[in-house]
Amino acid sequence: MKTTSTSLSVDGVHVWRGDRHVLRGLSFSVGSGQLLHVVGSNGAGKTTLLRVVCGLIAPEEGQVMWEGSNIRSDRSAYQSNIAFAAHEAALKADLTALENLRFAVGLRRTVSVDELMASMRRTGAEGYADLPARALSAGQKRRVAMARVLACDAPLWLLDEPFSNLDSAGVEVISALIDEHVRRGGSAVVVAHHGLVRRAGATQLALDE
């Protein structure tokens, strides 16, 4: 894990969706070893915010900076620094969990099957590595998706509702992983209803409508 003082800063970001002004001049920054916990009611723009930070949505106004330069200047280079887990698990139903990870992580870095199995073990997903993703439950898919985030070995984690569909043991496992990532100098932006607030060092960002 890299421990450089990575830093994400979002500066005066405005996003409209049709007539709806979803993000209104949002600014914050996340440094190395910091966790930003984003809360807000449905439709407050939490997912939109994550997609802006990913570089999938270009904001109408404002900018997203990574280590001092605008992410638009070299989007691909920036994106190799992030591990994003969207609301859906992003698994191909016809591939096994392991194959899914091999293709998804393999595009980012050269990775061995052992490493992938190790990260699956840490999220508690090693038991179904060879099952096709279609056979997995929503919670199991979530664990595989978190194993992908872990295996990407990226300094910035962007997680959209990582605890949804998980049992209480799963919530513990995933929050421990996020904790560890941050403790080792990583950064994380997490959209979640629960689980993180109690942690020291977490900043909370509340989006309202």
Binding site: G55, L56, Q79, N81, A90, L107
Partner: peptide, 14 residues
């Protein structure tokens, strides 16, 4: 539909 396109786009390649 299954979200893998986003992962491809974010894989750090053009």
């Amino acid at each position: 539909d299954d979200g893998t396109l986003e992962q491809l786009v974010l894989s750090g390649h053009s």
